[in-house]
Amino acid sequence: MPVALKEQTLLDQLKNPVTRAYAFEQVVRDHQEMLYYHIRRMVIDHGDTDDVLQNTFLKAWRYLDRFRGDAAIKTWLYRIATNEALTFLNQKKKHMHQPVEDLEADLRHSLTQGKYIGGDEIQQKLQLAILTLPDRQRLVFNMRYFNELKYDEMADMLEVTVGALKASYHHAVKKIEKYLTES
């Protein structure tokens, strides 16, 4: 089935109370992996990722009536997941009374000592370099570099202009390269 037709069929099923739960489960299956890694790259720890991912889908379910289908389901879910991940990090800073540096140290600890982390030394070093970026810049870098999303898609998801995204990404690349060169 063509992608556009499949999306429209899903949207119709999501609007129908009888088929809503079935269609939503399909949405979860289709997008869970993509969103898992999007969130995981931000919050690092698997358990935290699981919490944020569940919240993402619960919010999507709760606000399903407000989704009019103007954007693609993927864009809408990315937007919710991004907000949830950033909110989680902000709450972590607030509730633990942590300054930004301490949160970075906490994430660094999860990266180096936590479970479910693979890769070799250089890949871990790259992740440590990414952690030195501000949250939003980290988000933009991950979405462009790892997820290879298009700038206009990212602009829809993050509600930022394409120009601002490009500037942010290019700046992030320079900072990461500097970190990798110096360390």
Partner: peptide, 25 residues
């Protein structure tokens, strides 16, 4: 450094996740 994904999931996590979400809902 490349683009390899270093973040792993526990086994069966992905398979059980949709059921977990639907039960919570």
């Amino acid at each position: 450094a490349g683009k390899e994904n270093i973040f792993l999931q526990p086994s069966h996590y992905a398979a059980s996740f949709p059921n977990k979400v639907m039960e919570t809902i």
